[in-house]
Simulated scan of single mutants.
Amino acid sequence: MHSTRTDRRSTRYTLRLAAAALVSLAAAAPAFAQSTIADLAKYDGADRMEKLIAGAKQEGTLTIYTSTPVDDINAITDAFTKKYGIKVDVWRGSSEDLLTRGVTETKAGRYTADVYETDGPGLEALTREQMLQPVSSPTFKQLMPQAVQDHNNWVGTRLNVMTSAYNTNLVDASSVPKTWTDFLDPQWKGKLGVEAEDYDWMAAIVKRFPSEQEGLDFFRKLVSTNGLSVRSGHTLLTNLVASGEVPLSMTVYEYKAQQLKADGAPVDWFGISPIPSRVNGIGVSAHATHPNAALLLQEFEMTDAQAILVKRGFTATNLTLFPLPKGVSLDVIDSKVVLDEGKKWQDLFEKIVLQQQK
Rank of each mutant, 00 (worst) to 15 (best):
D268P: 05
F209I: 00
P121F: 12
A33T: 10
P177K: 07
V246C: 05
T104Y: 13
G156C: 02
A242Y: 09
I308L: 09
S10K: 00
Q258V: 13
V310L: 02
R101Y: 07
P266T: 11
V279P: 04
T139Q: 10
Y111Q: 07
D47I: 09
K141P: 11
T4Q: 14
Q306S: 09
S229I: 13
G120P: 04
T14G: 15
D347A: 08
K57I: 01
L170A: 01
K351D: 06
M202V: 04
D47Y: 05
W180F: 14
Q357M: 10
V241Q: 08
I333N: 08
I76Y: 03
S137V: 03
L184I: 13
Q356M: 10
T251R: 01
R92Y: 01
F219C: 09
F209P: 00
L354E: 02
D72E: 11
K311N: 15
T127Y: 01
K141I: 03
T225F: 02
A125I: 13
Q187K: 14
K191A: 12
R5N: 06
H2D: 14
Y65P: 03
K256Y: 14
T36P: 11
M162A: 04
K141E: 15
V115E: 10
A257K: 15
F219P: 08
M1I: 08
L296V: 02
R220E: 09
F32R: 10
V148P: 10
Y166W: 09
D331G: 05
K358S: 06
I205T: 12
H290I: 06
T315E: 08
K57F: 00
W188A: 07
D304S: 13
R312I: 08
I308C: 07
P266W: 10
P186S: 13
P69L: 04
A203V: 04
Q356D: 00
A21W: 02
I53E: 01
K221M: 00
P325W: 13
I308G: 08
P186Y: 11
R208W: 08
S243I: 15
